[in-house]
């Protein structure tokens, strides 16, 4: 997947994250390998929002974590503004983390229950910046305002907040270091619809105001369609389709994307009843022993013998990229 622009903001090449499965107590032997991320190329522009979708176990979270070097990649490179992140030493990485942050699904698990909002945010500010102590309260209040929390809650603990407010604290903490790049891993999945909408608006606005590049990982396609500029669809450790959010949704090309989009329930009774669903047989296979060739072929209604041979090369379809050799046969 290549972009025409000179130096992409984020440039990922051939990224692989494999986890060995070991057996034995004294003589540990690697008996198998889980190929969670298995060869991902991705380029992003500054300030864009990428939606990363796929079903559980497809490797979308592992990909997000590997990008930010929370997991060590097995192979490949991740460049942020031309700077290689893979292989940085501990202190170099620590310094580089000022530029990229992560938000997780469960804000209650990612906030320290014994720290007040002030402590949490002040710690994040101090970790990367020399702000004078006297300026801290002002800085914390500014952050809270930015995410729509009233600064009068400054002395409260995480348990005193609702789920949506906690997610705002987690976002404020991520913003404390003024990052350029943010990965939100299922950041709204645990929230109710009405609260979810608040957080989506917040993230979209922040991205626009601060020219923040955002990777929004989610299994909920309708949320992703709303927030993302472009979408990457993952299946078993690889990206199978990549393109602008709306075209990808309205006219999916890859057979997997087609099935995925058709399975998303629409909150409209008439449309929902008329809709033709593509029911895929079986479950997503395990990344432990992924099928040879195109990983989707065992569930694909259009699969032919050639699909079992090798993972399909990327083909450009307008402003989209698809990994499927059977595109001509579809429709």
């Amino acid at each position: 997947m290549t972009d025409q622009s000179a130096t992409p903001f984020l440039d990922i090449q051939g990224l692989k994250t494999h986890f060995p499965v070991e057996k034995g107590i004294f003589f540990r032997k690697t008996v198998a390998t889980v190929k969670a991320v298995d060869g991902v190329d991705l380029q992003l522009r500054q300030g864009e929002i990428l939606g990363l979708v796929g079903e559980s176990g497809c490797g979308k979270s592992t990909l997000g974590r590997t990008m930010l070097q929370l997991l060590e990649p097995t192979e490949g490179s991740v460049k942020l503004e031309g700077r290689e992140l893979v292989g940085l030493s501990g202190s170099e990485l620590r310094a580089a983390r000022k530029d990229f942050q992560m938000i997780f699904q469960d804000p209650y698990a990612s906030l320290n229950p014994r720290m007040t909002v002030y402590d949490t945010l002040a710690e994040a500010i101090l970790a990367h910046k020399s702000v004078h102590k006297s300026k801290l309260p002002e800085k914390v209040a500014e952050l809270m305002n930015k995410v729509g929390l009233s600064p009068r809650f400054i002395k409260k603990y995480p348990h005193e907040f609702s789920g949506g407010q906690r997610q705002r604290i987690a976002i404020a903490r991520a913003l404390a270091v003024e990052p350029k790049f943010l990965v939100a891993d299922e950041a709204v999945s645990a929230l109710d619809v009405s609260i979810q909408a608040q957080i989506i608006n917040l993230l979209a606005n922040l991205s626009r105001e601060m020219n923040l590049t955002l990777i929004f990982i989610s299994h909920d396609l309708s949320v992703v369609k709303h927030i993302a500029d472009r979408i990457a669809v993952m299946y078993l450790g690889r990206i199978v389709e990549f393109g602008p959010a709306e075209t990808l949704f309205d006219d999916p090309l890859h057979p997997y994307t087609r099935a995925l989009v058709s399975a998303v329930p629409v909150p409209d009774p008439d449309r929902e009843r008329e809709r033709q669903r593509i029911l895929l047989p079986g479950d997503p296979p395990s990344p432990l022993n992924p099928p040879k060739g195109c990983t989707f072929h065992p569930r694909c209604p259009y699969a032919v013998e050639a699909c079992k041979a090798s993972f399909p090369a990327w083909s450009h379809q307008g402003n989209r990229q698809v990994a499927c050799i059977r595109l001509d046969a579809l429709d």
Partner: peptide
């Protein structure tokens, strides 16, 4: 009205 699926992008 707060469901993303029904809102214009």
């Amino acid at each position: 009205r707060s469901i993303p699926a029904l809102q214009p992008k």
